[in-house]
Design a protein around this nucleic acid. Structure first.
Lengths: 154, 154
DNA sequence: TATAGAATTGACGTAAACGTAAAAGGTGCG
DNA sequence: CGCACCTTTTACGTTTACGTCAATTCTATA
């Protein structure tokens, strides 16, 4: 019974929320479900990005926590730092229109997009330079491998 | 006179190698010429990537050191770690064909090329996801900004 | 000779996102 | 009852390529 917080036990006649209702998840389930480690979840919490409930000392994650984690992972995927993600999440206000939050997100996104495009350009450069030098190296190998006994060229 | 090593002073009647002969460069000149910091040059040396001569305690870089630095910078540009660069440079043998070195370089280059292409794919993914969510955010902002008094859509 | 401008070594600091013990508490099950 | 498994907190370790003092020395020039 300890896994059900007071005031939310009504709709669930099952005493064991595991497997069925999915009302709460413990850290292990969360980790598997989202492909992260326990350490990562605790780390995110330590950084203020997640705030799961507690049953004693055990963390309990609700669907709200899951949504937050999804956002964090999306942020990470597009290259935001956890700091950026936190800045944006901290502006969330369930009672308002969140205009400020959205504007900040958009602003940061534009900058991040620019960074990504710059990175892509750098990588393209690198690919080109690398390909070029690979060709040169191959050529040198050919010169050193083929016809080592005849010809005086070199 | 201390800047000219014994056995190489013949062709240069000028006692001051600065500006003209470019036979040797000190760390400051090197840094400017290649756009790196003094710290970087010392760091590379500390890692065994450079081995400039010394006049007492002052580092003197020859054209050979310059060529090496160019290689290091090229390696870095295409994404090799300094460790990789060192591995490859360590195989250099002025008396042989350097086949081993070239093969290692080619091998590492192929792997690095693959990594770069994977990175580019990830970045493209990120760009797409980011663009998509930016569109969504813009849409949300429009809904919150325009027509806040009329319509019941929401 | 005074002073500014290089150069030297040594060593701690930084950033990001966790990894990896370590030591211990809680829990269900056979 | 005992063992296995999950979870907890604390805290140092990892990686890479330098940055940033600090204290000192060397050198050139006016």
């Amino acid at each position: 019974m300890k896994l059900v917080s007071p005031g939310e036990a009504a709709a669930n006649t099952n005493d064991i929320p595991t497997e069925a209702g999915e009302e709460f998840a413990r850290i292990g389930e969360m980790a598997k479900k989202y492909g992260v480690t326990l350490r990562t979840l605790r780390f995110y919490e330590d950084k203020g990005l997640l705030n799961p409930h507690r049953d004693g000392s055990t963390r309990l994650y609700t669907r709200r926590d899951k949504a937050q984690l999804k956002l964090i992972l999306l942020g990470r995927k597009v290259g935001f730092s956890l700091r950026d993600v936190k800045q944006m999440m901290d502006l969330y206000d369930p009672t308002g229109t969140n205009t400020k939050q959205l504007r900040l997100a958009l602003d940061k996104s534009e900058k991040q997009l620019a960074r990504l495009q710059k990175q892509r350009a750098l990588i393209d450069d690198a690919i080109n330079e690398l390909s070029t030098s690979m060709t040169a190296v191959r050529q040198m190998l050919v010169e050193r491998t083929a016809a080592p006994q005849a010809s005086a060229a070199g």
